[in-house]
Amino acid sequence: MKEKNYWKEYLMNELIFDSSSIISIAQNCLMKVLENLSKKTKNQFVMTKGVEFESVLKPLTINKFELNALRIKRSIDLGWFKVEKNEVNSEKIEELANNIFFAENTPIKIIHKGEAEALALYKKLNASVLVIDERTTRMLIEEPKNLEKKLKFHYRKKIKLNKANLKKFSSFVGKVNIVRSAELITKAFDLGCFEGELDSSKKSLEASLFALKFNGCAVSIEEINDYLSAVK
């Protein structure tokens, strides 16, 4: 037991963030909550250089978006959010992911370099969690058959899934633990990390979850209500 606690002190899991999740959290002024979670759980939050560009460097040049960018920049300056300085090679992931679904023999480019890089960094660092709020990358990893159904439903052209390429993709990326900003915030709530930003009431949690949802986190109202119904 003592040994476990000893290691726990020094154990640092790495959580890789896609730009969609960081933007949702910062937009809702929940960066302080995330910072508390990082410190309390001694986990390292990491983003790729591409994500830093999309969520900090680029919006800093646009008046309308610079406030959010400054919130994220501060987390990097303070050191609890790390930017992976080394280039991440995402070519293989892009190539595999974008040759799974076909419309009349033409591959559908389903994911972009940004998402592929986050996934590549997860793999490279052997990280513990990939935090991603957008749903396509998550579905491609967790439920490709449902993604296929979705594509078939929306497109008028015939959509085909190349099973061999899907298998190659799944085998290359391996097991990926995916959470959304919604789960991070519920965990932060449980661990008392709302302190300094919000009071620790169920109402604060409810408001935070709905704010994340309405800022693009791929979570449904039903999921949120199901979860909240069990919160005392």
Binding site: I110, T136, G216
Partner: peptide, 12 residues
């Protein structure tokens, strides 16, 4: 995005 592209692919 609703059709099934990823967020960044739709942005791009």
């Amino acid at each position: 995005y609703a059709f099934g592209l990823s967020l960044m692919q739709a942005v791009n």
